[in-house]
Computed example of a mutant assay.
Amino acid sequence: MEYNLTVIIPSYTEANSTFPKPVNDDYNYWIALIKHYVTKSDTIEIQCWNEETEIIDEINSLFIDEFEMVKEENLTIFKGAISSSLLEYLSNKSVSNKGELKWFTINLEKLMSPVFHSGHWGTELFIPNITKEDTAFIKSVTPNESEFQEC
């Protein structure tokens, strides 16, 4: 039986910041989940706040011919096909020099249907049409204090 799963990663914010970080400052759970779900996807959407110019420039320089870029009022959105170079980028270059996940939102899709959503810099996750086996995997890689809501 399939259902939807929301996962809230325990997080904190540093003084004078609104940026949530995992309590243990470890994004290994996120990398494991991305590697798992990118193989089930054909398209990615990356959303950054417009003021995150360093990250936007990085994505543009690495994937200029692979992604469509749309600038909205507050967001820059990149969308394109999953590739091996993209998987390498997500797996090995996901954390900034400040120790923060680089992307506000990552959406993975297959045949235009949602597969995986990572929001608020990897601290809020939504996985639609999930199986008990996938839930067991997610619980095995996320921090113990994570909150899970099945619907």
Rank of each mutant, 00 (worst) to 15 (best):
I64A: 13
T123L: 03
V7E: 01
K102A: 08
V141L: 08
M112Y: 08
Q149V: 03
I130N: 01
V70Y: 08
S85Q: 09
E124K: 10
P143A: 02
I59V: 14
P128A: 05
L5Q: 00
L75R: 11
K79L: 00
I34N: 13
N16L: 00
H117N: 13
S96L: 07
V23Q: 09
L33Q: 10
F116A: 10
V38G: 06
L5G: 04
E45P: 05
E73S: 14
L90G: 11
T135W: 00
H120S: 15
K132C: 02
S96A: 08
A32H: 12
T43H: 10
K93A: 09
N107S: 08
K132P: 01
E45T: 11
I9C: 01
N16Q: 02
V95R: 07
L62W: 07
G119V: 03
I130Q: 04
E145L: 09
W103Y: 15
T135F: 06
V23R: 15
N144M: 10
E45V: 06
F126C: 05
G99F: 07
P114H: 13
K35S: 14
I127H: 10
E133C: 01
I34Y: 10
H36I: 00
H120V: 05
D42G: 02
A32E: 15
P143F: 03
L5P: 01
V141F: 10
N16M: 01
S41Q: 11
E133H: 11
P10F: 06
E14A: 03
C48Q: 09
I31H: 12
A136E: 14
I56A: 09
E145A: 15
P128R: 01
K35G: 14
E52H: 13
A15T: 03
F63R: 06
T105D: 08
S61N: 15
F67T: 03
K35D: 15
F63E: 01
E45R: 15
K71H: 13
E124N: 06
E147R: 12
H120E: 14
T131M: 07
S11D: 00
W103K: 09
T53R: 15
S85D: 13
I31Q: 09
Y3V: 00
L87W: 01
Y29T: 08
C48T: 10
N16Y: 05
T53P: 02
N74C: 08
E133T: 10
P20S: 06
V115L: 01
I59Y: 03
S83C: 02
I56V: 11
I8N: 10
N97M: 07
